[in-house]
């Protein structure tokens, strides 16, 4: 087994953690019609961790990311970056969305230069650095195109380069490859892994794909159906492998089976919840 159960909240983990989530919960609405999206939840992410959160749809994983991103306020509990409570969006947390978050009125290079310019870097320098980042994500020939002229996979690369441009402490990724076709997705997964290895960024990655989580993550959190809480958490070693065909190994399959087993009961519960609504 290349995954092992792992307590993400051990006392040794919380000291000096990059991101700590404490008893975080979120409800929408109030009174009798209130819906709890996220049950009190604890997490800690250390520097250079690649943490994947896997869960059935509607389990509140995007809500978790929105709170860490500072776009939503928690109902109870708090999220901390380097010990400071998160109150609003900030440049130390780079966010990559599923799609449709690029600025279509700006060229690709202007999209990537947007963050540094907003933070006071002179336009010329920001553009120059942006071209370097576009090279990193393999888009140097497309700097002066507009996002809508690019394929879905290329657009996600722009999104990643744009998030990296501010040199954030942590990258928050909300199912960034979910809308891509299989081949493009696998290619980009390898690329994000190599970017992660080179830069040592801390990454919080939301996905519903177990393969993706096993392939990328150093740590995996499996969430329950609504209200989302941590069902199990693992340390994963597959991401250390350099074998591009790691997904075809028996260990990988066994690990996948274990997580599928956990998620299946959750997905069934989620469906019965949907039916009850």
């Amino acid at each position: 087994m290349r995954i092992e159960p792992f307590d993400l909240n051990g006392p040794d983990r919380r000291d000096g953690a990059k991101l700590v989530v404490e008893q975080l919960s979120k409800s929408f609405g109030s009174g009798a019609s209130a819906v709890q999206a996220l049950a009190p939840l604890d997490l800690s992410v250390r520097t250079s961790d690649f943490l994947c959160v896997v869960g059935p749809s509607g389990c509140g994983k995007t809500t978790l990311l929105n709170i860490v991103g500072g776009f939503e306020r928690p109902t109870t509990g708090r999220a901390l970056i380097d010990g400071r409570a998160i109150m609003k969006p900030g440049r130390e947390r780079g966010v990559v969305f599923q799609q449709g978050a690029l600025f279509n009125w700006m060229s690709v290079v202007e999209n990537v230069a947007f963050g540094p310019r907003a933070c006071g870097v002179p336009a010329e320098k920001a553009r120059h650095d942006a071209r370097g980042l576009l090279e990193l994500v393999g888009l140097s020939g497309f700097a002066d195109r507009y996002p809508y002229e690019l394929s879905g996979g290329m657009q996600q690369r722009v999104g990643i380069a744009r998030a990296l441009a501010n040199d954030p402490e942590i990258l928050l990724m909300d199912e960034p490859f979910a809308a891509l076709d299989q081949q493009t997705r696998e290619l980009l997964q390898e690329e994000i892994r190599s970017i992660w290895r080179r830069t040592g960024k801390t990454i919080l990655w939301i996905t519903h794909s177990i393969e993706e989580a096993l392939f990328l993550a150093t740590h995996i959190v499996v969430m329950t159906a609504r209200p989302g809480r941590v069902k199990a958490s693992f340390r994963s070693h597959f991401s250390e492998s350099t074998d591009p065909l790691i997904a075809a190994t028996p260990e990988f399959t066994a690990a996948k089976r274990e997580i599928v087993g956990l998620l299946r009961s959750e997905a069934q519960r989620a469906q019965s919840l949907e039916a009850a609504v």
């Binding site: 776009f71 969006p89 440049r91 947390r93 780079g94 966010v95 600025f103």
Partner: peptide, 8 residues
């Protein structure tokens, strides 16, 4: 949100 997260 993307713009806010980029520090705008």
């Amino acid at each position: 949100q993307a713009a806010q997260a980029l520090g705008a």
